[in-house]
Design a protein around this nucleic acid. Structure first.
Length: 749
DNA sequence: GTTTACGCATCCCCG
DNA sequence: ATGCGTAAAC
């Protein structure tokens, strides 16, 4: 596995008491701190683990899996829901290392991947075939667009939302369980006038999917939830099947997912969710960090466990992170501390422009490498995938090899979609969306002919074998005959996916040359990469599902990545860097409009999410942190314009940066000071107990009381809200709302 | 009537 | 670099 190099989430100290369980079993007390231990040993009942950045959240989940298995719970009855399939795989692998291989039998994956498996198993109960097709986001937008045109909603006089926007509106409505009108009201007020048309379109889209064996990402969740709700027998069966449920990254789940968790746990309530509200960064997908606060309401008797000790970062980095999040408007459920005093101050690097920024990063990386920091210990993080384009060129020039996450996916390339569309109709012949794509590739077939053929296909019951009988004019005869031949060939039973793909590529290559005559060699390489991936699959269905549910990154073939000799730098969007850590982290393009994104500047909530995103970014660093921002940027439209530094930079006290800013072009003279050997924090034996403070529970505080908070310092209570929340005016940072259920306030006498 | 070629604007984060 | 709409070509 290629990811091992970067992922090394909590590294196990060499001095650590034996990790491999051995005959003596696992020594949980030595491996875990008291709070982690509490979470691991609590085997039944509902639990909410609030786990700050770097607080050993993954470790806790891994040990809990091991503990359950060790206690004799059948691994098949344990379910681990994570944000990516990769995360689940890695956790189960780690559990296997500390206990035994049986941990691999634990069911792990994303909500979507589990929904996929469940729905295929129970497909006949919801009027679907087990070979339904899953639409990714752009498929779904394409389908919506076709239907929009068929409704005649393309009057350009009135500005109608574009297909991607429509897809976004529909998806938000589903994921937040609200109406389309409400979504428009909240976020798309300017499209309010099209509310009726959109509702009509939505119904048509739903109907279209149901009648053609299609499901988009949201349908996977909705149909799963509905199945659980409407079929008590099935929900009972499923709930009994998974006796122990764990959900990671709970702050990034939405209403729909929370409902599913509740239904899945209905018979036993053995559910542990883990998350960090200050790392909630997926609201654009309908996630709501308030979910995490709501959990105890849905599961009475929930045990709340807070992990507040950070094992990852130096005090310098953690303080910087804390100062960022201290400026947030609302909510603090915990305060992080570390036992790794000192460290190197973060460096702030204003650079003249993007080119200079790229050169700066390259120079620093080379310097770090000279000082013994391996490339795999370094990451460059940014807000959006395209922010690294310039840097990628510079890195290539400098001969620094890198792997990029969160950029373009292989699936997003038009030629890959073309090829997969052929495979899709073989599996699901009534997938009209794929037919549409395939047919338009043939010479002399345009929209009209395509529509006629599709109508004909529908009328003849979507029979692959009869496509050849279509009454055609001479102009398209040859093209259609060729298509028939290849479809027939690749649907021959008993072929391996790779053989089918080979045959298909032979058919598609001439088309590729015709359409992309100028750059087809590059695209041919992508097809080769697809062939490598296909090689790992025994069934087309599984291949197609995985391509949509775990889309591989473009350009980074598995073969190249598993090559251990090549030490690689990581480039990643911050979203894709969630949960990972590196010795040194660069955060680039910290300019207003880039980060925070210009999209976010209109709403306070969006800015708050950008802030959390920034928090996630800085807490990825263990030892060293660089923040860089271009003083000017160049856009084709406006030419060279001055950029304002990100407001998040201004939110960090200057004292937190190395005393002299690296300015202008003279940054190359700076020295790097590294210890070379990495200090690995040891896990604690005992927690220092409550200082003079008092653990506050409901109602014990009154307005006017003087309190102390680890991050915010001293302040006075202004107001106690509904016994859960308290408003405090802090001397340093002003008004804050704190949730007493989770945070610890000390009362000062 | 259809297809295709060309010029135009647009581009965040993700399963 | 893709995705749309319009205009020229079949």
């Amino acid at each position: 596995m290629s990811y091992e190099l970067q992922i090394n989430t909590e590294i196990i100290p060499p001095s650590h008491p034996l990790e491999k369980g051995g005959k003596g079993g696992i020594d949980y007390e030595k491996a875990l701190n008291p709070q982690q231990l509490e979470a691991v040993c609590m085997l039944t009942g509902p639990a909410l683990v609030i786990a700050g950045a770097g607080s050993g959240k993954t470790r806790t989940l891994v040990y809990r899996v091991a503990r359950l298995v060790e206690k004799g719970i059948p691994p098949q009855s344990i379910l681990l829901l994570t944000f990516t399939c990769r995360a689940a795989r890695e956790m189960l692998q780690r559990a296997s290392l500390i206990l035994s291989d049986t941990c691999q039998q634990v069911r792990g994956g994303t909500f979507h991947s589990l929904a996929n498996q469940m729905l295929r198993k129970f497909s006949h109960h919801i009027g679907f075939s087990p070979s339904f097709t899953i639409l990714d986001r752009s498929d779904s937008a394409d389908a919506i667009n076709l239907l929009r045109l068929s409704l005649g909603l393309d009057e350009k006089a009135r500005r109608f939302p574009k297909k991607d926007t429509i897809a976004e509106i529909f998806s938000k409505a589903v994921n937040k369980a609200i109406t389309i009108e409400q979504v428009l009201e909240e976020e798309f007020l300017h499209f309010m006038e099209h509310s009726e048309a959109l509702k009509k379109l939505y119904l048509l889209y739903t109907e279209y999917k149901n009648s053609h064996q299609l499901m988009d990402y949201d349908d996977l969740l909705v149909k799963w939830k509905n199945l659980l709700e409407e079929r008590p027998d099935i929900s009972d069966q499923v709930s009994r099947r998974f006796q122990y449920i764990m959900v990671d990254e709970y702050q990034d789940t939405n209403r729909l997912q929370a409902d599913i968790v509740r239904l899945m746990a209905a018979t036993h309530n053995n559910v542990m969710v883990v998350g960090d509200d200050s790392q909630s960064i997926y609201s654009f997908r309908g996630a709501n960090f308030k979910n995490i606060m709501d959990f105890p309401n849905h599961f009475p008797g929930t045990r709340i466990i807070t992990l507040e000790e950070n094992y990852r970062s130096t005090q310098q980095i953690l303080s910087l992170a804390n100062s960022l999040i201290a400026k947030a408007r609302e909510k603090y459920t915990k305060c992080l501390f570390t036992r790794r005093p000192g460290g190197v101050s973060a460096r702030l690097a204003p650079v003249p422009d993007e080119n200079a920024q790229s050169r700066f990063i390259c120079e620093r990386i080379l310097s770090l490498r000279r000082n013994g920091v391996p490339l795999s210990g370094i990451a460059v993080l940014f807000r959006a995938g395209f922010h690294s384009f310039n840097l990628e060129l510079e890195l290539t020039k400098a001969g620094i090899s890198f792997v990029k996450y969160g950029g373009l996916k292989l699936m997003e390339a038009a030629h890959i979609k073309d090829v997969l569309a052929h495979l899709r109709v073989v599996v699901n012949p009534c997938d009209l969306l794929s037919w549409h794509r395939i047919l338009l590739l043939i010479n002399n077939i345009g929209h009209k002919t395509c529509q006629r053929i599709m109508d004909w296909l529908r009328d003849t019951g979507f029979s692959l074998s009869r496509l050849g009988e279509y009454p055609i004019g001479p102009r398209i005869e040859e093209g259609l005959a060729d298509l028939c031949k290849v479809l027939e060939a690749i649907s021959t039973p008993g072929l391996k996916p790779q053989e089918r793909l080979e045959r298909l590529t032979a058919y598609y290559e001439p088309i590729l040359r015709r359409i992309y005559y100028d750059d087809y060699p590059k695209r041919l390489k992508d097809l080769e990469q697809l062939a490598v991936i296909t090689n790992n699959y025994e069934s087309l269905e599984a291949l197609l599902a995985d391509m949509v549910l775990e889309p591989p990154e473009a350009g980074a073939s598995d073969a190249a990545m598993s090559d251990r000799d090549t030490e690689r730098l990581t480039l990643s969007t911050i979203h894709s860097a969630k949960g990972l850590e590196w010795h040194t982290v660069f955060i680039i393009s910290l300019a207003e409009g880039r980060f925070p994104s210009s999209y976010a500047c209109e709403s306070d909530e969006a800015i708050e999410e950008e802030r959390r995103l920034m928090y996630v970014a800085v807490t990825r660093a263990k030892e060293t942190l660089f923040l860089s921002y271009p003083v000017s940027t160049y856009t084709p439209k406006d030419g060279r314009i001055m950029a304002r530094p990100s407001r998040f930079i201004n939110d960090i006290p200057r004292s937190m940066f190395e005393s002299r800013e690296e300015t202008g072009t003279s940054f190359a003279t700076g020295r790097d000071s590294y210890t070379g050997t990495e200090q690995i924090p040891s896990q604690p034996g005992r927690d220092e107990e409550d200082e003079a403070g008092l653990k506050t529970k409901d109602g014990m505080l009154q307005a006017g009381a003087h309190v102390h908070h680890t991050i915010f310092g001293t302040g006075r209570v202004r107001q106690v809200l509904d016994g859960q929340k308290v408003v405090v005016h802090f001397d340093g940072t002003g008004l804050k709302t704190l949730h007493l259920g989770y945070t610890t306030l000390s009362v000062v006498r």
